[in-house]
Amino acid sequence: MSEKSRNLAKQLKLVFKIFSRSPTLLFSLVVLLVYIIAALVVVLGFVPPLPPYKGGWEYMYQPPSLRDFPWYILGTEYTGRPLLLTIIYGIPKTLAVAFLSALITVGVGTAIGLIAGYVGGLVDELLSLAINVALTIPTYLLALILVVILPPELKTNVLVLAGVLSITAWASLARAVRAQTIALKRREFIDVAKTIGYGSWKIMFDEVLRFMAPFIAMNLVLSCVGAIYGYTGLAFLGLMPMTPDNWGVQIYMAIRGGGALYSDKAILALWSPIITIVLLQYALINIAKAMEDIFNPALRTYLQGEEM
């Protein structure tokens, strides 16, 4: 046990070393950590509940104040609720939708790509056809239609949303994984794995998959970026339930509600959710780029250097 925890500590230290090589990356990691901590804080109930909706112009887009510190430091949004609180309430759900959707996208894409590439033959023909068809259907387009026709109770379900936002997103990953698998199949370590008596599943999902780990990890993070784009973007079109904790709805209201168009009254209500989204996307994109380094043993050992 103690060896395991020591190993874990070593791994974490390593990840930290990789990140600290570049200030941008370190910044991105800190940003992501802040979001995750905020999500946990909300989920664990350390945050006051959202106050009820207050109609009337006087409550809308109030300027920052120190009342109920810190919840009103960004003022209020279009329903008169504290803006900071609604933004923080958006974090757990957005992260959950993004992560689940990424898991589905990457899980399905990897499995289909591996099986098509490794098994070959008729299985490959059929799966390739499925991949090619899915490639012609843009995820957000079909997601848009589905979001419109699904009954409201399903639209707020995190799992349904994650499924809708990954409905054909797996296809491009599947195509790339298939191509890489076909190339790897000719490598000698796969021949050896066969003589050792490893079954097809072991070869596909351990030997081949391990080889593609950096690529898969990068895609997992990039799929989160895509899902966040879809989740907030469809809300911005006004197609999602108008819950105050969706950043897309907040931006939509700041503009359509008229506040931001003619004065600076809604300036915080417009920019706070925008910065929240862009910061998260920026951090995720930088982290995605670093996955290659995290999973590459050569670089890892180089950084471990003195400890070896």
Partner: peptide
């Protein structure tokens, strides 16, 4: 299965025959 486990291979290229990760 008996054959499979009893017939082993040392490939030509030691660089390509070990899983790099």
């Amino acid at each position: 299965r008996k054959y499979r486990l009893n017939a082993q291979y040392v490939p030509q290229d030691p660089y390509a025959s070990l899983h790099p990760f």
